[in-house]
Design a binder for these strands. Structure first.
Lengths: 183, 183
DNA sequence: ACCTGAACACCGTTCAAGT
DNA sequence: ACCTGAACACCGTTCAAGT
């Protein structure tokens, strides 16, 4: 219970994110009850809405670390592997994150589904573009694809049940990868 | 207002489906309010639940015609085209249905996401299996894929906005198709 | 047997009142 | 400035009472 107003707000915000992160890890994105998060975080619902006007803005914060990790991984993979192999490894990492933090991709996908004028597909989109461009330059990736195509195709990862994971996660990724190759 | 009980029930059921179908066509699957459907159909909510215990059972009926069309199309395409081409044409038809009746695939997908013991993927799954098997027999399709892989990959079609359609519908399908080819 | 619709439960969202 | 939490809106689902 700190007095300084500004500090209060920041702490509230941090606590909301922390609680939401824990809740999502435990029960998944779909189960995320905003009112419950507010209560657990010890704030009023209005405070949650002040900090996060939409459900999505909250989820972006919840997954910020994971998204940053994935974005940072792309250029590093390109330093040590052929572009297509880098893409394959990056896919594997996405799958791994999606398994542990179901819904890492959910927020990303949302940006693709909506709006004609989505100038950017966000950081994840940029990472994919980087990988695709490198692959194209090396003649390994087909010319006619963009990051949005890849995002819609790998989005299934955020909807797989834990049960289905081992059976369904990796094979479709391989299909996508092979489909992206230059023929 | 017919008296015969059995007939009454059948008529109610038919009217519910009809209203739901119109509503889905107008506003999409996501906007489907079950209580509103009941009211519009002139029945109590309980009656709707008697006939359709879950939202999904209603949607299956709403899309029955379209699903039947797609299932019937697969063997016919195989009569006149090489398996991979048949698959390509079948994909195009799925895309076309998904555009007009957003959510044709939604009910189908649900069967994939849930349950370890999904012995069957339903009629759509059977149709895809037919196409894949023919392709494998002809040496055109890779050995290590099944209908479930294809369903999770093409599921994005049911989530595309109308705006995004022209830009995003077909290219990912091509990627999937090429990824399914034997290399 | 089948149907009705009030009532309950649940969750997101707003806003008047507080500090 | 920022926060609280009662209150409202909305929708799915149930069930006692009707026919």
């Amino acid at each position: 219970m700190v007095k300084a107003a500004r500090k209060d707000a920041l702490e509230n915000r941090a606590r909301i994110i922390e609680v939401a992160r824990r809740e999502v890890a435990a029960s998944g994105v779909a189960e995320l009850r905003l009112n419950a998060i507010a209560k657990e975080a010890g704030v009023g619902q209005g405070t949650l809405y002040r900090h996060f006007p939409t459900r999505e803005t909250l989820l972006v914060e919840v997954y910020r670390q994971e998204v940053d990790d994935l974005v940072g991984l792309a250029p590093r993979l390109l330093e040590t592997a052929e572009p297509v192999d880098a893409l394959a490894q990056w896919f594997d990492q996405v799958a791994e994150y999606a398994r542990v933090k179901r819904g890492v991709l959910a927020a990303v996908e949302a940006s693709v589904w909506r709006g004609i004028t989505n100038r950017s597909l966000g950081p994840i989109g940029d990472a994919i573009t980087l990988l695709l461009d490198a692959g194209r330059a090396a003649g390994q990736i087909r010319e006619d694809v963009d990051a949005g195509d890849v995002i819609v195709l790998i989005g299934y990862l955020s909807r797989l049940d834990e049960d289905e994971w081992s059976r369904r996660a990796h094979r479709p990724l391989r299909i996508v990868l092979d489909g992206l190759r230059r023929r």
